[in-house]
Design a protein around this nucleic acid. Structure first.
Lengths: 202, 202
DNA sequence: CTTGTTTTACCGAACGATCGGTTTTATGTC
DNA sequence: GACATAAAACCGATCGTTCGGTAAAACAAG
């Protein structure tokens, strides 16, 4: 009907995402967000009438949607567990830019002392990932309790590796995690430890 | 000489620490820090002439000092590796309030996009913890590469469990981590997985 | 093809509030 | 009185947010 947007929603949310993932919700100022998107502050308010919080909400929603499509869905899809986890490893590597990009679930977790506006979505996201990992471990032949433990451990390693990457300013921990992930979920308990099983060239 | 302080340095830094660990560096305002300590802003500036950054620096320094005394030192101390790790588990549980308190290394890691004023100290802290864990694994009979991998995994699990605790608003992941830590560092690779080995009653 | 209207996207400027930080005055102990 | 601490008042800057108005494309009537 009228004047076209100078930047489409997808690209816009993507650029906002980068800022929030880099410096968190409180740390991201409207000035930074405007600079990162090329729009002025007032224009950002035209696109997101509810302001900064809505921006973060849509960024989080987009990330969760991407996660559902590229991580959760492949985990529950077809193919052998090994094939599926290989696909997920590839997509995780892309999503976290090989460990150079932090996770929104960590960067948005604190805003207002306790449970901010994102707390519910964040909790659901953690639970969904654990559940998906657990289902894969179950399918690989592990008992329910064992599968849940492996899934929770995998999520711990994921987020821990990302925290370490930021602290050490190195992408190595995340790459180590990716290489170990298939073994974490699938390998037999008594086999040799989970190395050289994964893709390995990442 | 003259009028005594109404709150001693130790208690003061401790209360500041709580705020920074709860909502991060950017999220912590002088008003919150003043409210948490009982001092007015100007009085805080009397105690910390360089302002908020100095507060965070001293909070971080105090935490690292506590860590050196209660975590790193026991790891390198005397007694069997199992005894030492049990002591460390107990102190970690106290330091992180059973998972209810986040880690400063995570909450202070982002401030100014990349390497802020705490980046160097944070990196050193990660490396020191890895090194200490690695030394214990070595002492338990593991090869150097294997020991380093186990140490890095343990640090990943530590921080990942803390992130999960905040996201899920539950202390369970951290307790699971503590229970698994001794096995992560010490257990034989081919033995049954590391459960029921640890303290277990935490 | 014009021309005017509508509709939407964008932006400059300013809002009140709060930020981190400073100066000034009062308080309490020696 | 001497002097270190604490508190009140204040500062410029920036925060997130709002508003009035402009720029640009689609549509309708001539």
């Amino acid at each position: 009907m009228a004047r076209p947007q100078t930047i489409e929603e997808q690209e816009l949310v993507g650029r906002l995402s980068r800022v929030f993932r880099d410096i968190g919700y409180e740390g991201a100022s409207l000035a930074m967000l405007a600079a990162a998107t090329g729009l002025k502050k007032a224009s950002l308010y035209h696109r997101f009438p509810h302001g900064k919080q809505q921006m973060a909400e849509q960024v989080l929603a987009a990330a969760l949607s991407w996660y559902a499509t590229n991580i959760l869905s492949p985990l529950a899809g077809q193919g052998s567990p090994a094939e599926r986890i290989a696909m997920v490893v590839k997509n995780l590597d892309a999503f976290y830019a090989s460990g150079r990009q932090a996770c929104l679930l960590n960067m948005l977790a604190s805003p207002h002392t306790d449970n901010g506006p994102f707390a519910a979505a964040i909790k659901r996201a953690f639970e969904a990932l654990i559940k998906a990992f657990m289902a894969l471990a179950r399918e690989a032949g592990h008992a329910p309790a064992e599968s849940r433990a492996r899934a929770e451990r995998a999520v711990m390693l994921l987020h821990g590796s990302l925290v370490m990457c930021r602290g050490l300013r190195s992408s190595k921990p995340f790459r180590v995690f990716l290489a170990a992930l298939p073994g974490e979920l699938l390998a037999e308990p008594r086999s040799s430890r989970n190395r050289k099983i994964a893709i390995g060239h990442a």
